[in-house]
């Protein structure tokens, strides 16, 4: 039964993938990419990776689509027909694929409980998490505690990417007078968006603080938080959104999240432990772990939300036609 669901989802992914290659309208391709992400999120649920599915659904199907749409709006909607025949790429791809498939023949079977991947650190994580960390969600305990260094690195990468986008596109603090002429038509959307906006933020907080017990955590929460503001900006105009959350503040927040994360690590050192050792943060190790995980997840959430909003504002404050179209003279 599970194989059946698996095969159907993989088949749908293949169909979507081929459609993406063939279609020339980039808007349609963007939508298909979003569908592709949604199908892979479903597949992740079937494969027991609920945390990953939540992240993929929020990022792949949500934020990525909006960024792609913004890019398509700034560039061309239709892809030109390639000037040369694509036989060589097809050959390269077929050869690479064949080599990879040959490589999989030595891999353990799908779902094999005795595969080498499952025999080294993973059983320790699953067995030790209840006593050492005291949180039911093993993914959170590995992410935030056992492999806190990795996660600190990832958060720094995200922060750096945010800085990179800022350097390339910039967030311009110009006066926005524009109100689209058909703005009144958005009234239904605006009412519903206003209804959803607080709920989305509330859900983000739930995902953040419930991440120890169920699927969730800082990464997902940050993305959902940003989605709330993106929805607000889409329906109420960029100017209003920037008044709610000024771009200058976003820069500070993005840095503050990384700083909070590292500060927790250094606090552990000051209290006599190692870098990112949470056991010393409170009187007994387990509540120290709880506190540490909560703090660094909050840091991750703040950075992710701020960086995504920086990226979003960077894209949508651009005008088609280039930088000189930006001062409304």
């Amino acid at each position: 039964m599970q194989h059946l669901v698996d095969i159907v989802l993989l088949g749908l992914l293949m169909i979507t993938g081929f459609a993406i290659v063939r279609m020339r309208s980039l808007l349609a391709v963007t939508m298909l990419t979003s569908i592709y992400s949604l199908f892979s999120a479903l597949l992740f649920v079937v494969l027991d990776a609920v945390d990953v599915a939540l992240t993929e659904a929020a990022i792949g199907a949500g934020i990525s689509t909006i960024l792609l749409l913004a890019t398509v709006a700034l560039t061309t909607e239709y892809e030109k027909v390639p000037s040369h025949r694509s036989l060589l790429p097809l050959l390269v791809v077929t050869l690479t694929g064949a080599a990879l498939i040959y490589g999989t023949l030595d891999m353990p079977h799908y779902g094999d409980p005795n595969a080498p991947v499952h025999r080294h650190v993973a059983p320790d994580y699953i067995e030790d998490t209840p006593e050492e960390i005291g949180v039911p969600n093993v993914v959170t305990s590995v992410l935030a505690s056992y492999r806190g260094y990795d996660t600190l690195g990832e958060v720094t990468v995200i922060f750096t990417a945010g800085v990179g986008v800022l350097a390339l596109l910039g967030v311009h603090l110009r006066k926005r007078t524009e109100q689209p002429s058909d703005y009144h038509k958005l009234v239904v959307l605006r009412v519903i968006a206003k209804l959803f906006f607080p709920l989305i933020l509330l859900f983000a907080l739930y995902v953040l603080f419930h991440g120890d017990y169920g699927p969730g955590g800082g990464f997902q929460a940050g993305v959902i938080f940003a989605t709330g503001f993106v929805l607000y900006a889409l329906t109420h105009g960029l100017g209003n959104a920037e008044r709610v959350i000024p771009p200058a503040l976003l820069g500070i927040l993005a840095a503050a999240g990384v700083l909070l994360y590292s500060a927790v690590g250094i606090e552990g050192m000051l209290l006599g432990g190692k870098f990112l050792e949470y056991n010393v943060l409170a009187d007994d190790p387990v509540s120290g772990q709880h506190l540490g995980i909560l703090l660094i997840e909050t840091g991750v959430g703040i950075t992710v939300a701020a960086v995504i909003l920086i990226i979003y504002f960077g894209f949508v404050s651009r005008r088609p036609g280039g930088a000189d179209a930006q001062d409304p003279s």
Binding site: D48, V52, I59, L67, Y125, V138, V139, D150, I158, A161
Partner: peptide
């Protein structure tokens, strides 16, 4: 199921978004 790949991929998705955004920029 094994939680370790889940952790790796969870962070990779977010980093992937950040790098995709950089590419789009």
């Amino acid at each position: 199921s094994n939680p370790l790949p889940h952790v790796l991929i969870l962070t990779a998705i977010v980093v992937g978004l950040a790098t995709t955004a950089l590419g789009l920029a």
